[in-house]
Amino acid sequence: MPRLSAGQRHRVSFSLNGRPVAGEAEPRLLLSDFLRGVLGATGTHVGCEHGVCGACTVQIDGVPARACLTLAVQAEGADIRTVEGLAPAPGRLSVLQESFREHHALQCGFCTPGILMSLDAFLRQRPDASEAELRYMLSGHLCRCTGYVPIMRAALAARDRLREEPNA
C-alpha cells in the first residue's frame, strides 16, 4: 500500500453492517468521525475521544473496539458493525435491544449504542456469561443516567432469553 499523505483525502472502503461502503478520509480522520460525518451513520456517539467512556464502541471484525481510537484508514477492508446493524428488521428490535426497552436500561440513550455493541459481541462469544463477567464487560462503558442497575438487569434478561432461543 502506498504512503497516504497528510492533508489529502484517500478512499477508504469497508463493510458496514454487511454492506460495502466507501468514503474519502485524510489519514488523521478518526473512524468515529468517518462513520458519523462521512457515512452519515450517526448512531455511533462520541463522548470522550480518549477511549474511556465507551460511547463510540463499534464491532471491528466481530470484536468491540473504540471508534475514537481507530483511524478510518485502519478500517480499510474491515468488517464494521454499528448499532444501526443490530435490529433484525425495520420495526423489529433484537432480543438485546428489546430487553433494554423492557428494563428501562436507557435514559438519555447517548451511551446506549456503545453498550449494546459490547454486549452483543460478548453474549455471542459467551452465551453463558456470569453476572460478574457481564458486569466486568460493562465496566468499559460509562453511563451517567441509569446507575447501571437496569442495564445489568437487561443484560441478564437478554442472556437468558438468548440461551432459550439462540436464534432470536
Binding site: R36, G43, V83, E84
Partner: peptide, 21 residues
Amino acid sequence: RSLPRVEDAALLRGAGRYIDD
C-alpha cells in the same frame, strides 16, 4: 404504570436525534 418508553425505539436503533446528528 411502567409503560415502555416511546423514546426508546429510536434510541436503541441509533436513530436518536442529538445535536451532532
